[in-house]
Structures are given as C-alpha cells and as structure tokens.
C-alpha cells in the first residue's frame, strides 16, 4: 500500500486516503480538435515500466488533487507537487535524474539537457 506526501496539507497519506486519477499532464482537447488528438487525449496513455507522472486526489483528507512522480516498477516516489501546473517542476525532474539518469517521459526529461 503506497504512501504519498500530500503537497497541500503536508501529511504522508496512506493509499486508502487517496484516489488515483491516472496519467498527469494531459492536454485537454475539446471541440475543433482532430479525431486523432482527441482519441489520444482520452485513451492513449503512457503506461510505462519505470518513471511515470500520475494524478492523485487526497480524497479522504484535504480533497486536493496533486501529482506524483514515481517508478511504476519499484514504486519509488521521486516527489509530489501541486496539480496546478502543465509540466513537472524542475526540482522534481532533477530528483528523478539523480535516481534514474537519462529518463524521459512524453516530452519531459532531465532539466540539465
């Protein structure tokens, strides 16, 4: 059972307090978007083995959505950060590089590069 740090209320929250919300940093495609873009927005997810960015909601706590960067294979958590952003903060990306040099995820990678 995972334990994640809620960046809003600051607690280390048990997975039972949280609600998983799938992949983070999706770009919403609305009316006018191509069939392919909209399809990918709804259905095409990364599902990697390794570094991944996810959405979680502290549903049995402060109710806030946040993002977590973690390794889906080892379950190591590189960091969590508020959901009000379109890209992972530099500090998070650096923390991932320290543990998983050369990582990439969608368009994101080591901030030094």
């Amino acid at each position: 059972m995972l334990i994640l740090h809620c960046p809003y209320c600051g607690v280390m929250a048990d997975e039972t307090e949280l609600h998983g919300g799938g992949e983070a940093h999706l770009t919403r495609h609305g009316p006018g978007s191509s069939d392919e873009d909209f399809h990918d927005y709804l259905f095409a997810k990364e599902n990697p083995r390794g570094v991944h960015f996810e959405r979680w909601r502290h549903v049995q706590g402060c109710g806030k959505w946040f993002h977590a960067a973690r390794d889906t294979a080892t379950l190591e958590v590189f960091g969590t950060y508020p959901a009000q952003t379109t890209e992972p903060p530099k500090a998070i990306r650096k923390a991932i590089t320290a543990k998983r040099p050369g990582w990439t995820w969608r368009g994101f990678s080591d901030p030094a590069k």
Binding site: R57, W65, A83
Partner: peptide, 13 residues
C-alpha cells in the same frame, strides 16, 4: 462534486 472539483483544480485552476 468530485467531477466539478477535478476540472476546477486540474484544468481551469
């Protein structure tokens, strides 16, 4: 409520 919060917090914050 959760549906509204999700869009409020993660799309139109």
């Amino acid at each position: 409520h959760a549906h509204m919060e999700e869009f409020l917090q993660t799309e139109w914050w």
